[in-house]
Structures are given as C-alpha cells and as structure tokens.
Design a protein around this nucleic acid. Sequence first.
DNA 1: GTTTGTGAAGGATTTCACAGCA
DNA 2: TGCTGTGAAATCCTTCACAAAC
Lengths: 216, 216
Amino acid sequence: MTNLNNTDNLGSDIPVPEVVIQRLPLYVRVLMQFSSAGEKVISSEQLGTRLQMTPAQIRKDLSYFGRFGKQGRGYDVAMLERQLREILGLDRMWNAAVVGMGRLGRAVVSYPGFAPEGFKISAVFDTSNAIVGKTFSDLRVQSISQLTESVKELDIKIGIVTVPINHAQEVIDALVEAGIKSILNYAPLSPQVPEGVTVRGIDPVLSLQSMTYYIR
Amino acid sequence: MTNLNNTDNLGSDIPVPEVVIQRLPLYVRVLMQFSSAGEKVISSEQLGTRLQMTPAQIRKDLSYFGRFGKQGRGYDVAMLERQLREILGLDRMWNAAVVGMGRLGRAVVSYPGFAPEGFKISAVFDTSNAIVGKTFSDLRVQSISQLTESVKELDIKIGIVTVPINHAQEVIDALVEAGIKSILNYAPLSPQVPEGVTVRGIDPVLSLQSMTYYIR
DNA sequence: GTTTGTGAAGGATTTCACAGCA
DNA sequence: TGCTGTGAAATCCTTCACAAAC
C-alpha cells in the first residue's frame, strides 16, 4: 500500500486514482468539441472553464500518464484526444450485452448514443420465456442460460443490466459468472460483486434524492 | 425533532461533505429493504455489508446529523429511515418539469420509478413547435416560453433536461433563469451553471468510457 | 457481550506556487 | 511572455481504536 518512489509517476505502477479515470472521458468530450470548432490548441485554463474545474487539477490528472503539453502554448487538441482515448481503451470497439428486454432494455438498445462512441450491443437476453425469441433492433432475445456461451463467442466485455430490481442481483451474478468485469447497472440497487468487477449505476432517483438536500 | 447540528468538535457549522449527502439515499434504500423484510433493527455492520462499505464510514456519516443508534443494539430501522428522509427533504413531494419531449423525454415521463419516491412530473416542455400542444402521459407539452410562469404556478423545484445536446445549454440557462436550483441532466455535456445550482448528470456513455480503462 | 459515536491518525485528493521550457 | 509539469502544502475524506452505553 505504501508508495515509496514518488519522484516520478511516469512508467511506475502507482495506481491512478479512480476519480482521475472518471474525469478523463470529460476531457475527451471537450476536446471533441474544440476539435469540431476548428481549434487546434487548448490550454488547461480553457479545459477548466468548460468543465468548471481548476486548471491545476487538469494538469495534475494528465501528469499521471505523461507530458502532453507544450509550455507557453497548451495542448494539441487532436493529439491529446488520441492519447486519452488510447489510455482509456477507447481506440477500439467494445461489445456489450443487454440483459432485460422490457421497456428500459428496449430503450437502451435503440439509444443512438452508444455506437458512435464505439460501444456495440451485440446480444440481448431476458429471463422470461415470454420474451425470449422476439427481436428488437435486429437482435434476437436469447435465454440467459446462453449467456456464458455468447459472451465467449462474441467477445462481449460489458454487461448492461436493465431487468427489474427483483432479478437484478441474480443477473449480475450470472454476468460475473460468465466472466464479465464491467457492468452498467440500471436497476435501483447496490449489487454485491467480487473484487475486480467494476459496476457503475445509472440511477436517476438516487441523483434526485441527494439534490433535494440542497433545495432550501 | 431532528438534530441537524454537526459534531461539536470544531465549534460551528461545517457544511456536510457532498459525498456524505450522496450516500444518504443509499442508506434509505437499504433501510426500506430491511423494513419490508420485517427487520426492526440494523447495525452499521449490516448496512456496510449491503453497500460494500465500512461500518465506520456509515457511523461517521450519520454522526454529522445526530445520534440515531443505541450502543450494543444498532439502529431502529423505521426511525432511521424517517430521520434520513427528513434530512434529505424526502418527507414531502417534489414537483419536476421535464424539458424535451423527444424519445428520451417520453421515456422519462412514463418511467414508473419517480412517483413512489415523491417526485411528480407536473409539466413538460419542448423547444419545437411541432411538439408543443401534444399530450404525453396526460401532460400537455408547453412552449419553453411558458417555463417561468409554470414553475411559479406549479411550485416546480426540479428541472429534468432531455433535449438533444445542441439545445441543452440554452434549456439549462432557461431553467436557471426561471429559478430552478436542481437539475437532472440527461444531455451528454457538462453545462455551465452559476453557484448555488446543483446539476447531476445521467450519462451512460461517460460511465462506460471510464470502465473500459479497467478491462485488461 | 455488543455496537455506537467520535477524536485522532492515516490516506487520498486538490491546490499552490514556481522552475523550466517554448 | 505564457503555460506546462510537479514537488510541497493544504484540504478533504476514511479508517482506526476505544470509551461509553445498552
């Protein structure tokens, strides 16, 4: 746990804080905006203004991974975007499976925002026999019993959980069992997962419930 | 009734850390589960197991607001839930407005998870004249020019943004202008908002983009 | 015996501030 | 001159550990 060599982050294997990793996609997004606005160069100041954070934090975050800027000038927009995408693993396509083909699952598979960012929904599943066999967005709904096989065959690395809360934990267990390490969970519960599995929750009610505290 | 004082170690009103506030709804959720399972008492250990966090953190979080437990026993489930709801402002109903009645907005207004938690969508808006006047889930779509008036009239405290990215900032500006202090933003951008306005983003792509870092 | 509440310690993250380079 | 990269300082957050309460 104790880290001795802190004179040089580069090339050493200090784990990068998770908060930092979660901010990198924000930087990528702003870089895309600047890029399509024709800007070639961006400063940490400009990035900070867009994201409402301090320039120092942005520079510090980037320094975990290398030296991307030029003093007196800033960062090359295209180059920094490319580097960050590579760091995050966004320079390739990822196959995802959606489990739960109710209303929410169907909304997710037809959401047009995933594909342009390299996330392809390659298979869909459901626990109910009433839905298995139907087709949505050109994807035939499979039984959850076929999960492990499909995950292997289609090189699926991401699971998206859109089942009702009462089935969510068992579905997550099945995904973990099938070797999935990254889960996007739309069910309103905090699932139990083993070490090494990352879960991110999409939970609008939780978000609302913490905002009301600040309304005075 | 509720003791809203901080611990007295530093004398006066340190604001409660935002991370703490964001965890309170998680506690409420587990308390509901325990309650409907017939459990009367819960320990910080049990809460921690459910949420995959340490008992000490839970006790510390709660200590910002008062002393709710009994040594040697734990917390009264019903009482703690009631107290936390009061602290968060969840002991009342909140009116919300949805702006953007495209596919996503229609999914949001018909989502059955908000009402049981006390969030009522009381008005819906759109920027496009092609949609204004139509009705979804018994709500007639209004022009955004009527926002300020409706917010006042219907006591709307929460704005939910479901417009496409190119209209999102202007819609958020309009909500802020109308006096809204809490915004749930489904558009994939980091909006600029003044101090005192809370924004929470619902952004599945961002979540995926930070998870891929950990897939090795 | 059990479990809370909490100062104090420890760790993590952010910000400062400035040397160094374009 | 302008802006990055980064040690050091400051701040924030979590965990420890134990007295007090039941």
